[in-house]
Write a protein that binds this DNA or RNA. Sequence first.
DNA 1: AGAACATCCTGCTAGC
DNA 2: TGCTAGCAGGATGTTC
Length: 278
Amino acid sequence: MPELPEVETLRRGLEHHFSRRRIVDVEIIGSRTVRRHASEEVPQLLVGSTVSKCGRHGKYLIVFLDSGIRMVIHLRMTGRLEIVTPPFLGDIKHLHARFRLDDDRELLFFDPRTFGEIFISTTKDADQLPDELASLGPDPLSEDFTLEHLAKVCKKRNAAIKSLLLDQNMIAGIGNIYGDEICYEAGVLPTKRASQLTDGELAKLYKATGQILLKAVERKGSTLSDKKYLDITGSEGQYQKHHRVYAKVGTPCTCCGNLILRVKISGRSSYYCPYCQK
DNA sequence: AGAACATCCTGCTAGC
DNA sequence: TGCTAGCAGGATGTTC
């Protein structure tokens, strides 16, 4: 499921294929994807506008339009964006939105589980983050994410560090895969209480967060066999080859050889090495 | 107020 | 072979 590295890979694809294009037609199929709006409202707001840039905050994609409004896209677990040249002959099952561009190509939004969402923000400050996303924590690849911020939010949380890493209002962009990989890289047990972390552990977690996410962006995200993430042109990510713990229960740790274990942390499967992580 | 759980949904898999 | 129960998970709303 798309987390920060996958969404950043999509953002780069959108920036390349979607920016400077004018939207000439919008078709919304079903009402669930645009649930904050009446379906017919979305084409009215978008058609005729030109995309000025494509941004991202955490797992949210933000398409800035020259009209001053922003289209926000969240893929949740199974949302997928694809740029195609019509006629599109692929499977249109689970197709929920179709944006036709002035170069005759189309941006398609698919989502089998329909958790994904598209909404339009018309709040002012057109260059800024939409008001709807104001409660999100800093994006870990931005300069707003500092060791001081991490230490501050950890100090007042008694829950497991893994839960805090997944809390989008604390840090925006980390999901279940990268949360486990970050804890492993930092040598910290995912079950460790956030408030109990030492300064040394906080520093390691902070460093690991940047390192793991940057490496994963370089490898264009993770594509797992059962959870089909694909980029905007239909290519797979490569970072799954570098996973050390995620979904590896029962296999030996690449560092010490002990078997990777699984534990549930607030309902989510978490994977860790009982020897390398303390 | 903070933490944990239920909910939305479909596709896949394990087990009979 | 075919059925079903169970699981997966991001964000939100609800409950304790």
